[in-house]
Protein backbone atom coordinates (compact mmCIF):
# COMPACT_ATOMS: atom_id res chain seq x y z
CA UNK A 1 0.00 0.00 0.00
CA UNK A 2 1.19 3.51 -0.74
CA UNK A 3 1.52 6.10 1.95
CA UNK A 4 -1.10 8.83 1.97
CA UNK A 5 0.12 10.95 4.84
CA UNK A 6 3.37 10.79 6.77
CA UNK A 7 4.65 12.84 9.68
CA UNK A 8 8.32 12.46 10.44
CA UNK A 9 9.92 13.83 13.60
CA UNK A 10 7.45 16.71 13.76
CA UNK A 11 7.86 19.37 16.41
CA UNK A 12 5.44 22.19 17.03
CA UNK A 13 4.99 24.66 19.87
CA UNK A 14 2.68 27.59 20.51
CA UNK A 15 4.38 30.78 21.63
CA UNK A 16 2.98 32.20 24.84
CA UNK A 17 3.92 34.79 27.44
CA UNK A 18 4.85 32.13 30.04
CA UNK A 19 7.16 30.30 27.65
CA UNK A 20 6.35 28.18 24.63
CA UNK A 21 3.74 25.42 24.86
CA UNK A 22 5.24 22.34 23.26
CA UNK A 23 2.36 20.43 21.65
CA UNK A 24 4.27 17.89 19.57
CA UNK A 25 7.87 16.77 19.60
CA UNK A 26 9.61 14.13 17.48
CA UNK A 27 6.22 12.88 16.43
CA UNK A 28 5.85 10.18 13.78
CA UNK A 29 2.64 8.92 12.22
CA UNK A 30 1.76 7.31 8.91
CA UNK A 31 -1.61 6.87 7.27
CA UNK A 32 -1.68 4.52 4.31
CA UNK A 33 -3.86 5.08 1.28
CA UNK A 34 -7.43 4.14 2.05
CA UNK A 35 -6.68 3.51 5.70
CA UNK A 36 -8.72 4.79 8.64
CA UNK A 37 -6.50 5.73 11.58
CA UNK A 38 -8.11 6.82 14.82
CA UNK A 39 -6.27 9.03 17.31
CA UNK A 40 -7.13 8.82 20.99
CA UNK A 41 -5.60 11.00 23.66
CA UNK A 42 -6.26 13.11 26.72
CA UNK A 43 -7.67 16.60 26.33
CA UNK A 44 -5.08 19.20 25.42
CA UNK A 45 -2.47 16.67 24.31
CA UNK A 46 -2.15 18.08 20.81
CA UNK A 47 -4.70 16.21 18.67
CA UNK A 48 -6.17 19.29 17.01
CA UNK A 49 -2.66 20.62 16.50
CA UNK A 50 -1.76 17.38 14.78
CA UNK A 51 -4.64 17.75 12.33
CA UNK A 52 -3.90 21.42 11.67
CA UNK A 53 -0.32 20.43 10.83
CA UNK A 54 -1.52 17.68 8.49
CA UNK A 55 -3.93 20.14 6.89
CA UNK A 56 -1.06 22.54 6.27
CA UNK A 57 -2.61 25.29 8.41
CA UNK A 58 0.35 25.19 10.79
CA UNK A 59 3.96 24.54 9.81
CA UNK A 60 6.20 22.27 11.86
CA UNK A 61 9.28 23.77 13.49
CA UNK A 62 11.16 20.58 12.80
CA UNK A 63 10.48 17.44 10.85
CA UNK A 64 8.56 16.81 7.69
CA UNK A 65 4.96 16.19 6.66
CA UNK A 66 4.33 14.50 3.34
CA UNK A 67 0.95 14.01 1.67
CA UNK A 68 1.07 11.47 -1.15
CA UNK A 69 4.37 12.23 -2.83
CA UNK A 70 4.63 15.89 -2.03
CA UNK A 71 5.70 17.75 1.12
CA UNK A 72 2.89 19.70 2.75
CA UNK A 73 3.59 23.40 2.36
CA UNK A 74 0.11 24.75 2.96
CA UNK A 75 -3.53 23.77 2.80
CA UNK A 76 -4.66 21.79 -0.24
CA UNK A 77 -8.09 20.71 -1.39
CA UNK A 78 -7.03 17.05 -1.47
CA UNK A 79 -6.86 17.22 2.34
CA UNK A 80 -10.15 18.22 3.94
CA UNK A 81 -10.58 19.11 7.60
CA UNK A 82 -13.76 18.59 9.61
CA UNK A 83 -13.57 20.93 12.56
CA UNK A 84 -14.12 20.14 16.21
CA UNK A 85 -16.52 23.10 16.46
CA UNK A 86 -17.97 22.71 12.95
CA UNK A 87 -16.77 26.21 11.86
CA UNK A 88 -19.63 26.59 9.39
CA UNK A 89 -19.79 29.99 7.72
CA UNK A 90 -22.75 31.71 9.43
CA UNK A 91 -23.35 33.96 6.42
CA UNK A 92 -23.85 31.04 4.04
CA UNK A 93 -26.88 28.79 3.94
CA UNK A 94 -26.50 25.05 4.37
CA UNK A 95 -26.19 24.72 0.60
CA UNK A 96 -23.83 27.71 0.43
CA UNK A 97 -21.56 26.03 2.95
CA UNK A 98 -21.52 22.72 1.10
CA UNK A 99 -20.93 24.40 -2.26
CA UNK A 100 -18.22 26.68 -0.89
CA UNK A 101 -15.25 24.49 -1.83
CA UNK A 102 -16.40 23.66 -5.36
CA UNK A 103 -17.36 27.29 -5.91
CA UNK A 104 -13.96 28.75 -5.00
CA UNK A 105 -12.41 25.87 -6.92
CA UNK A 106 -14.22 26.98 -10.07
CA UNK A 107 -16.55 23.99 -10.42
CA UNK A 108 -19.48 24.87 -12.70
CA UNK A 109 -22.85 25.69 -11.19
CA UNK A 110 -24.70 22.60 -12.42
CA UNK A 111 -22.01 20.23 -11.17
CA UNK A 112 -21.86 22.10 -7.87
CA UNK A 113 -25.58 21.76 -7.35
CA UNK A 114 -25.49 18.10 -8.18
CA UNK A 115 -22.70 17.40 -5.72
CA UNK A 116 -24.43 19.38 -2.99
CA UNK A 117 -27.74 17.61 -3.64
CA UNK A 118 -26.09 14.22 -3.34
CA UNK A 119 -24.18 15.10 -0.19
CA UNK A 120 -27.14 16.77 1.49
CA UNK A 121 -29.32 13.78 0.85
CA UNK A 122 -26.55 11.49 2.11
CA UNK A 123 -26.38 13.38 5.42
CA UNK A 124 -30.19 13.65 5.50
CA UNK A 125 -30.44 17.43 5.21
CA UNK A 126 -32.01 17.94 1.79
CA UNK A 127 -34.98 19.71 3.34
CA UNK A 128 -32.83 22.21 5.19
CA UNK A 129 -30.64 23.42 2.35
CA UNK A 130 -31.89 27.01 2.56
CA UNK A 131 -31.44 27.37 6.32
CA UNK A 132 -28.63 29.28 7.98
CA UNK A 133 -26.33 27.49 10.46
CA UNK A 134 -27.85 29.30 13.44
CA UNK A 135 -31.19 27.68 12.62
CA UNK A 136 -29.78 24.15 12.90
CA UNK A 137 -29.23 21.82 15.82
CA UNK A 138 -25.68 20.95 16.81
CA UNK A 139 -25.94 17.53 15.19
CA UNK A 140 -27.26 18.99 11.95
CA UNK A 141 -24.40 21.51 11.89
CA UNK A 142 -21.88 18.75 12.35
CA UNK A 143 -23.43 16.88 9.40
CA UNK A 144 -23.20 19.98 7.21
CA UNK A 145 -19.55 20.22 8.24
CA UNK A 146 -18.96 16.69 6.99
CA UNK A 147 -20.82 17.36 3.72
CA UNK A 148 -18.83 20.54 3.19
CA UNK A 149 -15.55 18.70 3.63
CA UNK A 150 -16.62 15.94 1.23
CA UNK A 151 -17.75 18.37 -1.48
CA UNK A 152 -14.17 18.84 -2.67
CA UNK A 153 -13.82 15.06 -3.07
CA UNK A 154 -10.67 14.93 -0.94
CA UNK A 155 -8.22 12.03 -0.85
CA UNK A 156 -7.53 12.57 2.83
CA UNK A 157 -10.13 13.37 5.47
CA UNK A 158 -8.89 14.93 8.69
CA UNK A 159 -11.62 14.73 11.28
CA UNK A 160 -11.43 16.43 14.69
CA UNK A 161 -13.87 14.79 17.12
CA UNK A 162 -16.64 15.36 14.58
CA UNK A 163 -19.30 13.40 16.43
CA UNK A 164 -18.38 14.33 20.00
CA UNK A 165 -21.34 16.66 20.50
CA UNK A 166 -23.95 14.26 19.13
CA UNK A 167 -26.35 12.06 21.05
CA UNK A 168 -25.69 8.32 20.98
CA UNK A 169 -28.22 7.55 18.27
CA UNK A 170 -27.21 10.33 15.88
CA UNK A 171 -23.60 9.42 16.47
CA UNK A 172 -24.28 5.82 15.42
CA UNK A 173 -25.99 7.08 12.27
CA UNK A 174 -23.12 9.41 11.49
CA UNK A 175 -20.59 6.63 12.00
CA UNK A 176 -22.54 4.43 9.62
CA UNK A 177 -22.68 7.31 7.16
CA UNK A 178 -18.92 7.80 7.37
CA UNK A 179 -18.36 4.08 6.79
CA UNK A 180 -20.54 4.13 3.69
CA UNK A 181 -18.79 7.26 2.39
CA UNK A 182 -15.47 5.56 2.96
CA UNK A 183 -16.61 2.32 1.31
CA UNK A 184 -17.63 4.27 -1.79
CA UNK A 185 -14.47 6.36 -2.15
CA UNK A 186 -11.79 4.82 0.08
CA UNK A 187 -10.37 8.08 1.33
CA UNK A 188 -7.60 7.96 3.89
CA UNK A 189 -9.02 9.13 7.17
CA UNK A 190 -7.26 10.50 10.22
CA UNK A 191 -9.96 10.52 12.86
CA UNK A 192 -9.50 12.15 16.25
CA UNK A 193 -11.84 10.99 18.98
CA UNK A 194 -11.92 10.61 22.74
CA UNK A 195 -14.30 7.67 22.52
CA UNK A 196 -12.55 4.28 22.52
CA UNK A 197 -15.63 2.49 21.15
CA UNK A 198 -15.77 4.93 18.26
CA UNK A 199 -12.12 4.23 17.48
CA UNK A 200 -12.79 0.49 17.57
CA UNK A 201 -15.85 0.84 15.36
CA UNK A 202 -14.22 3.01 12.69
CA UNK A 203 -10.47 2.48 12.62
CA UNK A 204 -8.28 0.03 10.78
CA UNK A 205 -5.77 1.11 13.33
CA UNK A 206 -5.76 3.33 16.38
CA UNK A 207 -3.07 5.15 18.31
CA UNK A 208 -3.24 6.38 21.88
CA UNK A 209 -1.33 9.57 22.60
CA UNK A 210 0.28 10.69 25.85
CA UNK A 211 -0.29 14.05 27.50
CA UNK A 212 1.40 17.06 25.89
CA UNK A 213 3.81 16.86 24.09
CA UNK A 214 1.99 14.02 22.41
CA UNK A 215 3.81 10.71 22.04
CA UNK A 216 2.35 7.47 20.74
CA UNK A 217 1.84 5.22 23.77
CA UNK A 218 -0.04 2.44 22.04
CA UNK A 219 -0.70 1.44 18.45
CA UNK A 220 -2.97 -1.44 17.45
CA UNK A 221 -4.69 -2.81 14.37
CA UNK A 222 -8.37 -3.58 14.45
CA UNK A 223 -9.56 -6.44 12.23
CA UNK A 224 -12.31 -5.97 9.65
CA UNK A 225 -15.17 -6.68 8.88
CA UNK A 226 -16.78 -4.58 11.59
CA UNK A 227 -20.27 -5.94 12.24
CA UNK A 228 -21.96 -4.84 15.48
CA UNK A 229 -21.27 -8.18 17.20
CA UNK A 230 -17.56 -7.78 16.54
CA UNK A 231 -17.53 -4.87 18.98
CA UNK A 232 -18.18 -7.39 21.75
CA UNK A 233 -15.81 -10.12 20.58
CA UNK A 234 -13.05 -11.18 23.00
CA UNK A 235 -10.38 -9.65 20.71
CA UNK A 236 -12.08 -6.28 20.58
CA UNK A 237 -12.71 -6.43 24.28
CA UNK A 238 -9.01 -6.95 24.90
CA UNK A 239 -8.17 -4.00 22.63
CA UNK A 240 -10.61 -1.79 24.48
CA UNK A 241 -9.04 -2.76 27.81
CA UNK A 242 -5.60 -1.98 26.44
CA UNK A 243 -6.65 1.39 25.03
CA UNK A 244 -8.37 2.43 28.24
CA UNK A 245 -5.33 1.43 30.25
CA UNK A 246 -3.07 3.48 27.99
CA UNK A 247 -5.41 6.44 28.42
CA UNK A 248 -5.05 5.99 32.17
CA UNK A 249 -8.73 5.28 32.71
Amino acid sequence: MSVSLRMDGVRFSYPSAEGDVLALDRFDLTVEAGEVVCVLGPSGCGKSTLLALAAGLLSPEQGAIVAGERPVEGPGVERALVFQKHALFPWETVRGNVEFGPRVGGVGEAERRKRADELLSAVGLSELDGQYPRQLSEGQRQRVGLARALANEPKVLLMDEPFASLDALTRRQMQALLVSVWQARRQSILFVTHDVDEALALGDRFVVLSARPAKILLERRVARPRDPEALYSPETRALREEALRALGA
Binding site: L57, P75, F89, G101, G105, A149
Partner: peptide
Amino acid sequence: KEYVWAARTLGAEGWR
Protein backbone atom coordinates in the same frame (compact mmCIF):
# COMPACT_ATOMS: atom_id res chain seq x y z
CA LYS B 1 -9.47 32.20 12.74
CA GLU B 2 -11.65 29.11 12.37
CA TYR B 3 -13.51 30.60 9.40
CA VAL B 4 -10.26 31.56 7.74
CA TRP B 5 -8.89 28.09 8.34
CA ALA B 6 -12.01 26.40 7.05
CA ALA B 7 -11.97 28.51 3.89
CA ARG B 8 -8.28 27.82 3.30
CA THR B 9 -8.70 24.05 3.58
CA LEU B 10 -11.58 24.39 1.12
CA GLY B 11 -9.30 26.08 -1.40
CA ALA B 12 -9.73 29.83 -0.84
CA GLU B 13 -6.52 31.88 -0.71
CA GLY B 14 -5.44 35.48 -1.24
CA TRP B 15 -8.04 37.80 -2.69
CA ARG B 16 -10.63 35.04 -2.74
